[in-house]
Design a protein around this nucleic acid. Structure first.
Lengths: 239, 239
DNA sequence: GTTTCAACTGAACCACCGTTCACACGAGGA
DNA sequence: TCCTCGTGTGAACGGTGGTTCAGTTGAAAC
């Protein structure tokens, strides 16, 4: 209800835009909370309005339909992937290090939006054809960030010959898995331990022998999948 | 409508039982077909009846509610996992071979029930608390089949130290991935190629150096992730 | 104080669909 | 032929919930 200084300074259309994005954020956050426990179809628009602290009519002033709410939630999280993952890779030159940083960042974003990640699997089929295509394109784009580094790593001779597309989807899937199987995994792992364990499991089969020492830190994950080299502070205490 | 010889020979309660299972199969198959394209909530009971070639009233004679239809579909596929996977491992003694056979069989069952596997992720939250617990328990049981072999392999010294629970879920997830990401993977891989590529990728990080030669066939997957040893008939032709 | 207008409200509308049930059918028995 | 009963039918009922819109609010302009 109160406007901050920046809005007062700006013109009326800027105020409008600021209010719109503020309202949409209210809606997205409330919807995410409710959908997590109820799913999209069981969430009533009236419940969403109550959860967001606004009226039903106001909801419809900022989204076209109930389906628009779902789209807003999914786009919110997919946009976060698309900005956070490249940010994590920026500044690194080595393809394998870029891959590792990107994947770990992906896992962390998933962790922060765990419910939304699950919703993407549960509910995206409720979207119209066109909106579904947009969601898929955003997901493909994020996977492509990883695939590119796999190809670069192979070209640089650091990674063995492999199918970058398949491995790229594997990494994407393993990141999503943290959300999808959180019931089973979250009980005894945290995101970072999970991400590094999975990364080392994948890289173990990929890094060429000559480079194993160079990437030892990535290969000896906390899950001690790296083999004889590593017997680091084990995770067993956390179980 | 026509009874076969076996039914005529049997008593009336056997005829009843046979008709019940036949009707339920009609319903499950029609529901699977419709849910694949429409999802559970958008599938009308009246559409299901039409698709199955029966009336709405008859549907309700064989299931308690719309939710019961979903449960029947999910139990159908989960029961198939639970019978096919152990069958594939039976007769093998070596833990790594049992693991491989179980995983590949799992992938094949998923392939045959691709739509139902996706439905488990999409719609299982629509089940009641109790039914959901049963579905989860069935999934945990199937993963447990793989976890047990991982532990046996480690105990036998064939596999490096690792977290069998995490790797077990990875294998489960990779099998499900064939259904979840079929849009992207099915375009250039078939199930067997997919299963062997994933299996070799996982085993590469797990098999101890001393045993690599013994399991060479499993390690040099069709994706040629196994490294310098393997340059088998490549899959590139299929792309 | 009055006017104006964008933003907000929520009760009411009505289309939709899960479920029911009164009836139809037909095979076997009397 | 008539009766019985297990099975199947689908129109109709009734609750639900997405969507609308006539009315309210309150801040800014004059």
């Amino acid at each position: 209800m109160t406007r901050d200084a920046a809005e007062v300074e700006a013109g009326p259309e800027a105020i409008r835009a600021a209010r719109t994005s503020w309202r949409r954020r209210q809606i997205v956050e409330a919807a995410t909370r409710l959908m997590e426990e109820q799913g999209f179809h069981d969430m009533l628009v009236s419940s969403l309005a109550r959860e967001a602290g606004i009226s039903v009519g106001t909801v419809y002033q900022y989204v076209n339909s109930k389906e628009g709410i779902l789209l807003a939630v999914l786009e919110d999280v997919l946009d976060t992937y698309a900005s956070e993952v490249p940010a994590a890779m920026a500044g690194l030159a080595d393809p394998v290090e870029r891959l590792a940083a990107g994947f770990l960042s992906y896992c962390r974003v998933i962790d922060a939006h765990r419910m939304a990640a699950v919703l993407a699997y549960r509910e995206s089929h409720s979207l119209g054809r066109e909106d579904l295509q947009r969601v898929i394109a955003l997901e493909v784009a994020t996977t492509g960030l990883l695939t590119a580094e796999l190809e670069a790593g192979r070209a640089a001779g650091a990674l063995r010959p492999h199918d970058p597309e398949l491995v790229g989807w594997n990494l994407t899937m393993l990141a999503h898995m943290w959300a999808l199987k959180h019931r089973h995994l979250g009980a005894y792992l945290d995101v970072d331990a999970y991400g590094r364990a999975q990364l080392s499991a994948v890289l173990c089969g990929l890094v060429v022998d000559a480079q194993r020492e160079r990437y030892a830190a990535l290969l000896e994950g906390p899950g001690s999948v790296a083999g004889p080299l590593a017997a680091p502070e084990s995770l067993d205490g956390a179980r």
